[in-house]
Structures are given as structure tokens and as C-alpha cells.
Design a protein around this nucleic acid. Structure first.
Lengths: 202, 202
DNA sequence: GTCTATACCGGGATAGAC
DNA sequence: GTCTATCCCGGTATAGAC
């Protein structure tokens, strides 16, 4: 049984966390190896013992970012009783995504912020984990549709893109020090589920 | 009457358009003065005849980005007949925002992509135009609320943040060459207005 | 594993010719 | 108005001491 964490692993993690935070704040090109090193109290040259290049750090940050939010939403959707209301399942998934995005780690937020600005080859290396996460939501929404919970003219794919887009955009303005993530999740769930208008419009 | 466009003005516009496009694609720090110059068939030194610094170009790009989307939405909301349905006004505003964001110019999309990553002082210099645009939406949504068109538990400010966030996020995946913006606007308007679930949930 | 020192390149910006 | 030439800084990455 091997549960000790080596010094190497600790340094690796510190480097990745620092990079994620800085990428999120200043963009990929706006962050230098020197600043990443400074942020974890090392010197720039030392980073190359753990990673072969800045691109490799970036690639790992992007992958971890999706894996974390995937795990959060999968957990939120897993142990729900059979008779859970559709809106409550939705609320759990929304809440899981928002927590992963807005608190704890910067990996998910770094991914959301910089994905489209990094070199295309690196975007491609992030596609597998992205598709797996998209499939998780798609499966959930298709099940709602087939159980008759969605309006007839709502397409699961379009809905997923809008929904995740709306959640990701909270990154631009929401400050977890000033507001409760659970309340945010409730408000978003309410509007997504019931809409904003009182009259039903076709 | 002075309608001629001087060579100076033409060059200025080309520089700003090139910068907007490149900022949008690669982020602020990811774009060099040399690349901006190359993109409008000039040399880097020439840019400094028109602008004193890269930051000045950035500042103008950000301001123009908001001004364009503001004008588009203001136009969409202006000449509507008095008896226009709430959902139709919403559709017009949504459509105006999406057209400004996804076609024609890169100024608005550059703003959405890079705003949070630029130096704080430059974010501050963009605040006035941003607040004016936010006020346009807020006014529209408060009028809907006071006319009794919004659900009681829907707060105009939260709604605005969610709504504009959802629209801005389309930038990450929508390709105007592959889909119709008007159809996108319809789908978003429908879900925002009526929600996704058939059952009404409180 | 982390350091210092350094190579080499491309960044923003300026000066002065045309 | 645009060019070329150049300055100085900070970028990524490597080599070798400790």
C-alpha cells in the first residue's frame, strides 16, 4: 500500500495549481514560466524537471479542469432516488457544475476562460475529456426528454449548449465571497426550468 | 459637408479591425504589434503613428465592442409597436445581441473573450460604456416586470446576468457559417421565455 | 529536486530617412 | 504616413553545479 505523497508529486501539484490560477486570470500567453515559478516559490529552471514545456503544463491544466467538473456533476446525479423530481435532478447537476467552476479549484475556470485561445493542437488534445463531459449532460437531458419532462420543441443538444454556456458565463461576474453558490444555482435552475415569462408563448 | 474618409482614418480602422480579430482569436497577450501590422499589410513601426501604445489600441477595441452591441440592441428595441408581445420584444433584443456578437465585426466578440484578462486599469476604462449597455437591458427587463410579464420570483438583475451570459457563451461554439443566427435567437428566446420543463415547478 | 547562468528569440517602443 | 534600424526587456528553454 503506497499512500505517501512524494516531494516530486507535491511540487508537480503546486506547479499545476499555480499555472491554472494564473492562466485563468491573465490568459495563456499572459503568463510566463517565471511567474508560474514565482507563484510556487521556485525558480523558472526548476519547472523543467517536472514538465518538458509550458505547453505540457497547459495541456494538463485543461484536462484536469474538465475532469473535475465531470466528477462533480456525475456525483451530483448518481445517488438520486428513483422518484426524484426532474427539477431537483436539474438543480443538483447545475449546482455541481457551478461549485466546480466557482470554488475550490481554478482548473475548471482556467479551461473555460482560455480554451478557445490556445493553439489548435492543444485544443484537440482536450477533446476526448470534453466529449465525455458533454455526453454526461446529453444523456441526462435525453432521459428527461424521453420521460416526457421537456417541452416538445426543446432539442437536448441546443439545450445543453445553452445551459452549460449560461453556467460558464457566471465566471465573468460571480464572486463566491459575495454570494452563495447554492442560491445562484437555485435562481438559474428556476429560470431554466420555468422560464422568465408568466404567459406561455408558442 | 465633410464626408471623405482620409487615408489616416482608413489606416486607423484597418488597424483596429485587425487587432480586434486577433485579440479575439489569441487573447491580448497572445497578439504582438508585429502581427497586427502584418495583418493589415503594414510594418510594426507604422502603428505608432496612429496609436501611442498597444494598450491604447486595446482600449479602443474594447469600447467599440460594447458600443456596437449597444447600438444593435437599442435599434432592435426602438421602433416596436406599442402592442408588441413581451416575447417578441425579447426575441428582438436577443437577436440584436447575437447578430452583433457573431457576425460582421470582431469588436464585440473580442471584448467578451478578453475583458477579464486585460490589466485592471483598462477594464476600468471600459466600465462606463459597459454600464450604459447593462442599463439598457435592465430598463427593458424592469419594464417587463412592472407590466406583470415576469414570474414573481424572477429578479431583473439576476435575469440580465444570466441572459447576457448565455448569449455571450454562444461565441464559444456557434459558427455563423454553419447555422442561422435567427434560428439560434429563436431557440434561446423560447427557452428563456418558457423554460425547458413541461411541469410548472415552484 | 532545485539552483544559477546563459543562449537565443521575439516582445513593445523610438528615431530618423523617405 | 510608412518605412528601416535599433534599443532594451523579458520570453522559453537548456546545461551543469549543488
Amino acid at each position: 500500500m503506497q499512500t505517501e505523497i512524494s516531494q516530486t508529486d507535491k511540487s508537480r501539484d503546486r506547479i499545476l495549481s499555480s499555472a491554472a490560477l494564473l492562466f485563468c486570470e491573465h490568459g495563456y500567453a499572459g503568463v510566463s514560466m517565471r511567474k508560474i515559478a514565482e507563484n510556487c516559490e521556485m525558480k523558472a529552471g526548476s519547472l523543467y524537471y517536472h514538465f518538458t514545456s509550458k505547453d505540457q503544463i497547459l495541456t494538463e491544466v485543461l484536462n484536469i479542469g474538465i475532469q473535475k467538473v465531470h466528477a462533480a456533476v456525475a456525483d451530483a446525479l448518481s445517488d438520486t432516488p428513483k422518484d426524484t423530481l426532474a427539477i431537483d435532478k436539474l438543480r443538483r447537476a447545475v449546482s455541481g457544475h457551478l461549485h466546480a467552476l466557482l470554488e475550490n479549484s481554478s482548473f475548471t475556470s482556467a479551461n473555460v476562460r482560455i480554451f478557445r485561445q490556445v493553439p489548435e493542437e492543444i485544443q484537440l488534445s482536450n477533446l476526448d475529456v470534453r466529449r465525455a463531459y458533454e455526453a454526461l449532460w446529453e444523456k441526462f437531458l435525453i432521459e428527461l426528454k424521453e420521460a416526457g419532462h421537456l417541452h416538445a420543441n426543446v432539442d437536448p443538444r441546443s439545450l445543453r449548449l445553452m445551459l452549460i454556456g449560461a453556467l460558464n458565463a457566471t465566471l465573468e461576474w460571480f464572486d463566491p465571497k459575495l454570494g452563495e453558490i447554492s442560491e445562484l444555482a437555485d435562481r438559474y435552475t428556476n429560470i431554466l426550468a420555468n422560464g422568465m415569462l408568466r404567459e406561455r408563448n408558442l
